[in-house]
Amino acid sequence: MNIFRLAGDMTHLVSVLVLLLKIHTIKSCAGISLKTQELYALVFTTRYLDLFTDYISLYNTVMKLIFLGSSFSIVWYIRRHKIVRRSYDKDQDTFRHYFIVLPCLVLALLIHHKFTFKEVMWTFSLYLEAVAILPQLVLLQRTRNIDNLTGQYVFLLGAYRALYILNWIYRHYTEPHYVHWITWIAGIVQTLLYADFFYYYFQSWKNNVKLQLPA
């Protein structure tokens, strides 16, 4: 494990915890896309099927369980919690799941390393993770007032992806057999989706003004 990978995982972990804590303490999910959260729950479910078949490390297993548990908790809060669900703005969060899920599934069936159930599901999870943030980004653009925590959540998610790219570059040079182009392409696409958001995030930070995305 290199420093970029660890920093990436920790950023990812903090992003999820920030979101869960925000929802839990202020009992509101305003500005959060349920669609994105459901897609992440699907990403983790399909990617971590190997929990049942392979043991990699304690770190790996624990982190996988945390990501699964937190993503399903967030979905539960937004859908079922009697106070939190009232703050969910259904009319703004209009992105259709199948516009994202179907193309990813078709792509995973066509482009993969091995045609086995586990491998296709793993590949599907990579493609899906790359675009799962889209409903959240659309929602951010529609919400004129982005609260600090939501902005930080999206920023941390983007930072996690950027750190993973550094991790791959590092591994590419230090581990000669480490080649995984599907991961790379999906990961680069995913990081690019944040480019626009990053630009406005840093602008607002530099000028010390509230984050707002242009319409």
Binding site: D54, N60, M63, H113, W122, N167, H177, Y178
Partner: peptide
Amino acid sequence: TAAESGKDEL
């Protein structure tokens, strides 16, 4: 192995 195929990542 898991490391070679990147499956050791999250």
